[in-house]
Amino acid sequence: MKTVTGLFDNYDDASDAVGELEASGVPHSDISIVANNADNRLDHTDTSHMDTSNAADDAAGGAGLGAVVGGAGGLLAGLGLMAIPGVGPVVAAGWLAATAVGALSGAVVGGAAGGIVGALTESGVPENDAHVYAEGVRRGGTLVTARVDDALETEARRILSQTNSVNLEQRRSEYQADGWTRFDADADAYDATTIGRDGARDVNRI
């Protein structure tokens, strides 16, 4: 299995990508979405199906977030609310979210590279890329990650590198130009008045 990842400044673009991945044959159990929700941008979402209580405990215990809040309506029907250190409040679903929550409790991965960075690197994402992805979510973005077999890898990469996805190398350069070096899980999370600045940046136009 290969891990394919895309970062989006706009949640709706990320949601569309999830739908395309599912339509292409990727099981929703192999897709994950993590969206910053510090400004309650997703407050319009019907939260009646969301698990807001024990998702972290169940994920850390091995059940996996998808098993906790999953449903027949695909991945997005299983959105749950949680907080990730350094990122803040997120709306998330899928295996990466469960792994990140487990990492925070030491159940899945441990050490300094725990949390969202540890979950990404554990799944095969290069650590330097994982830091950019995590920082992107911290600053208001939405991360979509899929585990795919060889037959679906090309299509999954096409979907997650679509017009409205972030150009990772360009975004890395922009962060570094501002003095950023790596994601810091101990840093204060951005609040509603400071997140979303990345959305004003140029996106990848392929």
Rank of each mutant, 00 (worst) to 15 (best):
A185D: 03
L75M: 06
S48N: 07
A112P: 05
V166N: 09
D12P: 00
R201I: 13
T154E: 14
G140H: 04
A60C: 00
Y133G: 00
N204C: 07
V148W: 15
V125I: 06
A177G: 03
T52R: 01
A67M: 15
N37C: 09
L7I: 05
G78Y: 07
A119N: 10
A92K: 05
S48L: 09
D13W: 14
G136C: 04
R182C: 10
I33W: 03
G6S: 01
A35G: 02
A192T: 15
E127H: 10
A113P: 05
V68P: 01
M82D: 13
G73L: 09
A72Y: 05
G196Y: 05
G140M: 08
N204H: 14
G6R: 08
N10Q: 12
G111H: 06
N167I: 14
Y175E: 11
Y190D: 07
K2P: 02
V68A: 04
G70M: 05
A103F: 00
V117Q: 13
A59F: 08
G118L: 08
Y11H: 15
D178M: 15
T5A: 09
L65K: 04
N204F: 09
G179W: 03
G94Q: 01
L81G: 08
A100N: 07
P85G: 06
L21S: 00
D202L: 13
T99C: 09
D9G: 11
Q162E: 05
G94A: 00
D58C: 13
D12G: 07
N167D: 11
G179C: 13
L81T: 15
R205Y: 14
A77W: 06
V166M: 03
N37I: 08
V26W: 00
H28M: 01
L75Q: 03
H44S: 15
V26D: 00
A14D: 14
P89C: 02
T121Q: 11
T194I: 15
D46Q: 09
E20P: 04
D30K: 14
A56G: 10
H28A: 05
R197Y: 13
R197V: 15
Y133W: 15
R172T: 14
G102W: 00
L65A: 14
A177N: 15
G141S: 08
G73D: 12
L79D: 06
R205I: 11
I31V: 09
I159G: 00
T142I: 10
P126V: 05
F8M: 07
N204W: 12
N10H: 12
A146L: 00
R158P: 02
G73S: 13
R158M: 15
H28K: 11
L104T: 09
L96P: 07
A192H: 13
R172H: 13
A156E: 02
L75D: 00
H131D: 13
R157S: 09
D9K: 11
S32T: 15
A151N: 11
G106V: 05
A14C: 03
G114F: 10
A192D: 10
S32Q: 13
G136D: 04
E127A: 04
R182W: 07
T121N: 12
D149F: 02
I31N: 03
G196K: 12
H131M: 12
E155C: 01
G74P: 08
L152I: 02
T52Y: 03
G19R: 02
